[in-house]
Each structure stands twice: as C-alpha cells, then as structure tokens.
C-alpha cells in the first residue's frame, strides 16, 4: 500500500516537473510582457505596463507580417484540404500494386525537413520561370503557399484518411440506389460524412501554416510573414514587445481551447440525450401496426 502511495507521489512529481518544463518558459515570457523594463525580465519588476502591447500594434512590419501570414494561412487551407481529400480518396481506390509507391510519395513531405521542402520548391519554380518566362510562380507568397501545402496536404490526408476508413460504403450504394448521380453521392453523402474531419484538418492546416518558419523562410523571398519578422527581431535583440505578442497568441489559444472544450461537452451531452431517446423508443417498437394505423390515402394517390 505504501509502495503504491510512493509511486503515486513519484508520478505526480514527475508530471509536475514535465509540465513545468513545458510551461515555465512561456509563463516567464508572459510576465516579461507586462514588465516595463526595457529588456525582457521578470525581476526587477519595474511596474506593470501595457505599453509593450501598444508598441506591438503600432509596429507596421509586425502588422504587415501578420496580414501576410493570415493570407498565406487561408490560401494554404484552401489548397491543402481539397488536395488532402483527393489524396485520401485516391489512396483508398488506387490499384493495389501502385499503392506503396503512391503512399511513399504522398507521405514523404511529412518525413522531410521543412527547410528542404522550401529549398526544393524555390529551386523548381525558379527553373520553371527561367525556362518558360512565366513570372507568376516565382513569387514569395505563391511559393510559400505551394511549399507549405506540399506537407500540410499530407497532414490533412492522414486526418481525412482516418475518417474515410470508417466510411460505410453501403451509404454510397444506398444513395446511388435511390437515383443519385456520382457527383450527388460525393456532395450529399461523402462530404457531409467527412465534414468534422475536414474542419479539424482546416484548423490544423491553418495553424501549421501560421506558425511555420523553416519552409517559409526559404520560400518567402523578399516578403515577410509574422514568423520571419519575429525571427529577425529576436535575432537583433529582444524587446518585451515580442513577449507581448506571445502573450496575445497564448491568450487566443487558451480562449480557443476553452471554447472548443465547451462545444465538445455540449455536443457530448446532446449525443447522450439522443442515445437515451433512442433507448426509450425501443420500448415502443412493438406497439403500432401499419394496418389501420395509417390513413387509407397514404399510398393510394
């Protein structure tokens, strides 16, 4: 018994240490955001201030970077989710002999360092531009979207694949049997079934894009995203304004996480209620019979 107690204590201490490691640096950074000292510091705490937030929001480069990041994030979602969806569907249908090669190709971006994805994209499109003379693709934002999408699509594919594998093909057949065309089956049955997974894939794709640095820094050329602006600032020297930015991001994160948790709880409760309703209905299964129960005109006209 005491052995177990000791074990519980050890585990508790270990977890506490682990999460201190995880959160400690962020908390310290958060405190520095509110300290009026010029260098990010906790002590001496020279008085609470919101000044760093004001400086941050009037910093044109940061705001511009943020705009670019948001734009790229949205574009990446628009590319990655449809591409990942197609990738997942094709994986379930492709000829068995081609599947290993196909799988190797589509998951390789997940196992390739981000810098290399950025590098190869830039090299490729530079060459395309040189040989064809089309300048459209040799553009920081376009190439960042393309390079980020190459691996974010793979994330999306893996998420969608997990859900797709639980898809009951008889739903598709039922829709066909009722007269739907293949396009209607896709729109009315498959897409709604995948919608939750597509939502999570979109969120994940946006976040992955928004915080990406390694790929972006190679592909963005002369433009700047929030992360590349930040990287430049941090390397030049640190001001608490950067801590302020981190605090804002963490605050948004926590708010989003709490909102997500609440939505999930509500959804769970709703599902539970439905199940209870279904169970209650079982009792009535045996009562009404069609004959006499329904009005005569039901099918006659």
């Amino acid at each position: 018994m005491t052995g177990q107690l000791v074990n519980r204590w050890l585990i508790g201490i270990y977890l506490a240490g682990f999460f201190t490691y995880l959160f400690g640096p962020l908390i310290v950074m958060g405190i520095t955001a509110f300290n009026s000292s010029n260098y990010p510091a906790v002590v001496p705490f020279e008085g609470a201030t919101l000044e760093w937030f004001r400086i941050l929001l009037s910093d044109g480069e940061v705001v511009q970077g943020l705009r670019t990041s948001l734009l790229i994030g949205v574009l990446v979602v628009c590319v990655s989710v449809p591409v990942g969806l197609a990738g997942a569907i094709v994986l379930t249908q492709i000829h068995a002999r081609a599947r290993p090669l196909y799988y190797l190709v589509v998951v390789s971006p997940v196992l390739t360092p981000g810098v290399i994805i950025g590098i190869s994209t830039v090299i490729f499109w530079r060459d395309v531009t040189q040989t064809t003379g089309i300048r459209m693709f040799y553009d920081g934002i376009v190439m960042t979207v393309l390079s980020q999408s190459s691996f974010i699509s793979a994330y999306c594919m893996l998420i969608l694949l997990a859900r797709l594998q639980r898809f009951d093909r008889s739903l598709e057949e039922a829709a066909l049997d009722l007269g739907a065309t293949h396009a209607q089956v896709f729109r009315d049955v498959l897409l709604p079934f995948l919608r939750p997974a597509m939502l999570s894939a979109s969120v994940l794709a946006f976040l992955a894009s928004f915080e990406n640095y390694n790929t972006t820094t190679f592909a963005i050329l002369a433009d700047k995203t929030l992360t590349t602006v930040l990287a430049g600032r941090v390397r030049q020297g640190s001001t608490p304004a950067i801590s302020a930015l981190a605090v804002m991001i963490v605050a948004i994160t926590v708010a989003a996480a709490v909102a997500y948790e609440i939505l999930k709880r509500r959804d769970d409760a709703r599902r539970k209620a439905r199940k209870a309703a279904a169970a209650a209905e079982e009792g009535r299964d045996l009562t009404p019979v069609v004959v006499g129960g329904a009005p005569q005109s039901a099918m006659a006209d």
């Binding site: 959160f23 915080e211 992360t227 930040l230 981190a246 991001i249 963490v250």
Partner: peptide, 8 residues
C-alpha cells in the same frame, strides 16, 4: 504550448 510559435 504548441500553438505558440516556434520562434517564440
């Protein structure tokens, strides 16, 4: 913590 940027 992973919603916080790698740089940060």
């Amino acid at each position: 913590p992973y919603w916080v940027n790698e740089i940060l």
